[in-house]
Design a protein around this nucleic acid. Sequence first.
DNA 1: TTTTCCCGCCACTGG
DNA 2: CCAGTGGCGGGAAAA
Length: 377
Amino acid sequence: MSSVAHRESESKNPYYYSRKEKSLGLLCSNFLNFYNQDGVDSIGLDDAANRLGVERRRIYDIVNILESVGVLSRKAKNQYFWKGFSAIPRALDELKEEALRENFSTSGVFHSANVSSLNHCGGPSNSKTVRKDKPSVSNKVDNRKEKSLGLLTKNFVKLFICSHEDLISLDNAATALLGDIHDPTAMRNNSAAKVRRLYDIANVFSSMNLIEKTQHPESRKPAFRWLGINGSSKNGPTSLEFNDSKRRVFGAEITNTLSKKSKSESSIDCNSNEKADMPMLMKHNNSKDTHDRSSMEQQGRYSSKGFVFGPFTPASVPKVGDSGNKNERRVKDLEDLASYRPQYHNQALSDLFAHYVAAWKSWNVEVDEKKQTQEVS
DNA sequence: TTTTCCCGCCACTGG
DNA sequence: CCAGTGGCGGGAAAA
């Protein structure tokens, strides 16, 4: 059965509305297609918004997420540097280091209250000791940053790179990143609302092939699998299916029918008038593949399969037995630290961290060897 | 019904 | 003051 080439009937119908065609993931794919080419080195938010045919607000979402992984970096107001997929590995390394550092020293975070600190248990982080009073005034000069999409993204990534072969369920991620969803005592923290951000992040990562949406083998629980650099890089975003060369058209949204703002419709110059046609430059990726020579096999694919994480992952995960044992000493301390959670003692969180620490241990050894091997220049 | 998550209001930020 | 940013969550499409 030939795939439905054109479903004109639908796309033509002015009242047709499909949520999928407007997904952040798709938008991100297009974004990447436009900028992931040699020659590009800076991005203008306005330009991006015009080319993609979306409101600027959406660009901020994408840009913030991409920046967390190193693909972009802020240059100035309205301007970003394009770093490319090749910048991801380094960014991940940094995140990893940062994660470790934080875990160890975070315990004493008492006043620093700044910089990105993996303040798990979400929320106003430190202080907030017992129940001093109402949550508002005593805040620092805004902990707005602490709730940013960018930070959330980084923490999300840390979850993966700090563990070995991963398949993290949505629930676990949500629990670790934001506070516990069903936290009993107080903190009716509206984390449920924040889970939306998790979906956003997952969608753009999916479009980059950094992760993949799946579900646990048995339980139907949704989960994310880390694909790493292999997935992304070189081929850039593998077009989802066919080319979804479909760009949003300004007046087409039925939701905007009563354009309240009549935004900047008459864009600066943006000569391109034809709307139904977009240069599908996605197919032939640029030839400058990121030097992923030898592919270094990345973290092995020997993923779970062996042991499945039940819906209620029992604490102490058996842990693979291949772990080395030279760093044991140091790790030991870490584990202690991990289990010592002064505030908001959250069972699930502790388990997660314990797991990550253990995973980190073995991974570290592996990397070490690898490094020696390919240690060249 | 629940899960996923788009849209855009409007508070905040940096000039 | 203003334009650029980006939390945040209502509520509707998708499963």
